[in-house]
Design a protein around this nucleic acid. Sequence first.
DNA 1: ACTCAACGTTTACGGCCGTAAACAATTAGA
DNA 2: TCTAATTGTTTACGGCCGTAAACGTTGAGT
Lengths: 130, 130
Amino acid sequence: MKILNNPPHITEAESEVMKLLWQKEPLTAIEIISKLKDQMDWSDQTIKTFLNRLHKKKAIRFEKSGRNYLYYPLVTYDEYVKAANRSFLDRMYNGAVGMLFAKFLEEEKLSESEIDQLQQLLEKKKKGGS
Amino acid sequence: MKILNNPPHITEAESEVMKLLWQKEPLTAIEIISKLKDQMDWSDQTIKTFLNRLHKKKAIRFEKSGRNYLYYPLVTYDEYVKAANRSFLDRMYNGAVGMLFAKFLEEEKLSESEIDQLQQLLEKKKKGGS
DNA sequence: ACTCAACGTTTACGGCCGTAAACAATTAGA
DNA sequence: TCTAATTGTTTACGGCCGTAAACGTTGAGT
């Protein structure tokens, strides 16, 4: 019995709206619009479009409380990241996580402490590995 | 003095053409078209379009040798993967490799041997870290 | 010299995405 | 009750992408 369907696809611009909602929920339209207007240099109309599209694809919902509309995310950050990761992993590495790690390790410089952290994560994974 | 510009953006469909060329170079148009026709169920025209677009964006080049056209990649697989990785890393994790690793480790199951392999890679990185 | 096949080039078209204007509805306050 | 502000909805438009038809060129063989 499958309950959770795949989260809807959230585009990069739309994700800016979601990021706000993942930080604090709910937000009013004014809050969302004014913040993104600054940060992203978007017009109000543009932001309204994204809110509308996100609503249509059921990534957010809103309630009206008097004159204010309150926005809530319906897709969690984790669902979003997970879906994006999966899709990238499949596209680029045919699902082979090992390959992905190897490539990133080869390309990106990691500080010693980052490496230590990863080693600890791997150790934990080895034991409790869920 | 900058010599290498960023590689052009190669879309998913286009990458199917590139994959062939990364396996064996050069290839003739017939080879490319007939292979993708089967594998991808694309029409000849579609494949020609991709060849053309890839050429326009300088991801491939071709030579005419008599009646045959020979295709060569201009973008290497490594450049392609590297650019895609960078772009994904920036988009999703703001460039923080550590975060990316943590998320993938959390989500994907790794076999014990894969974990061992990664640990070795990390060890090597720690010492010789290029 | 002419024709057919092998290729490249141009044009097209619907869908998604970033961007935004214009229109509609509703409600708090004058 | 009228108005202005707040917010949602509809429509638009150019660019990229997947998909493909139509057209043009050139060279090998007749």
